[in-house]
Design a binder for these strands. Structure first.
Lengths: 231, 231
DNA sequence: CAGTGGTCTAGACCACTGA
DNA sequence: CAGTGGTCTAGACCACTGT
């Protein structure tokens, strides 16, 4: 006797129909009631399968209009952005952290603009390095809003990286993240053991907690770094 | 009379408890039955709220062990990778496409390794440019597996970009995508109107259809390009 | 205004896994 | 082995939106 048909079975079957070309882009998909009948399951089961396909950008759903295979397959790539420590340890390498500099400053204009800070705000400016098996892995240029996190002024960042400190202090927050390419200047080249002019992959992240800026960080990876995912 | 409490309400409430610090990282969350009782809803409703929080990396769930707030907030960034044409048109700019070269070749070794092709496989090698409001926007270096897609040999890529052609020919497929930084060499600098040595953001994508390689593409963006998302 | 997806319910059985 | 989440069902009402 067959086990229950699961929403996964249905999802896979629909996806197969799409990849095989039975249902071309733009084509209408039967409505949930028909699908439920044809698969012999409850509508909720079909609904879950279809909902997930829509979330993944495979199909489009509209009330009354029904479900269609997406015209241009909107591809949605998902990246997990772990703590550097985990990223390195998960690769089986030894993690080492070093603080390079720490200073309390007035927020520079570009930072005030980015984080929407007022002119009197002080920030803690940290520069750090993360090493994998002794080699430079990532350069961290970190700015922390002291108006929101005055306790950062007293924290000791010589042993614990600011990322890990922040995770404990402000566990969950909103963030804007962006990827781009940068050139190694002399200082970066020294830190990352590369040549000035080398192209470097960098990640910038601004973080808010309940609509107030917490921190901005620029993370520059060693030459050749790739951020990869499947979808 | 109050409307139903929705799974969104519950999700928001739990997220609020976490961001406010009521439930710290590592803390246990009541089980679904208790939550359902305390919110006055069915367990399925709580289940959906919790399932989505888990999907977003906020909490961890294990049978028997229960649900906990994640220790290190695994951040999951999602990027939509649209067709270049849409990317440009969505910014309100005029899109223009140009093919630069087209040739049928034997697959070079690096490509055979990447796509797992055998030695006799022929590929179509295309180089193209995408312009936004007349300025170079993206350089495309495309390789198409002619063993899998022989009809590409006869297709006219001088008017329609290979991306759009492929979307129609092989609508849905598996892909591996990766982001990195590259340096402009003289040829790239000419195409993208920049200087040799400029750092450029690039995206590489290998695509499979039912476990057979379809295409590999390297997309190099003009200087200064950023790929941004919120989460 | 009628068709479609969005969501909730109350109950059930099951799979996994920690104690 | 017992507790927790994973999933399905059958039915219901509702919100949105195209025709």
């Amino acid at each position: 006797m067959p086990q229950h048909t699961t929403y996964r079975d249905i999802k896979a079957d629909i996806l197969r129909k799409i990849t095989k070309g039975d249902w071309r882009p733009g084509a209408s998909i039967p409505n949930e009631i028909e699908l439920a009948a044809s698969y012999g399951v409850a509508r909720a089961t079909v609904n879950r399968a279809m909902r997930e396909l829509a979330e993944e950008g495979i199909i489009e759903r509209k009330r009354k209009a029904g479900s269609k295979v997406r015209m241009s397959p909107l591809r949605r790539a998902r990246f997990d952005i772990p703590l550097v420590r985990r990223e390195i340890e998960d690769q089986g390498q030894a993690y080492r952290y070093a603080m390079i500099s720490s200073a309390v400053e007035g927020a520079p204009d570009w930072l005030r603009a980015r984080l929407n800070l007022d002119t009197t705000t002080e920030v803690l400016h940290l520069v750090c390095m993360h090493f994998a098996d002794g080699s430079p892995y990532q350069y961290e240029d970190r700015w922390i809003n002291l108006a929101l996190l005055p306790e950062a002024r007293e924290a000791d960042f010589s042993a614990l990286g600011p990322n890990e400190w922040l995770v404990a202090a402000v566990p969950f927050s909103d963030a804007e993240i962006s990827f781009s390419a940068a050139t190694a200047d002399q200082a970066l080249a020294n830190h990352l053991s590369c040549s000035p002019g080398d192209p470097l992959f960098q990640l910038e992240r601004s973080t808010w907690w309940q609509d107030r800026a917490v921190t901005y960080v620029r993370l520059v990876y060693r030459p050749g770094h790739r951020m990869t995912t499947r979808y």
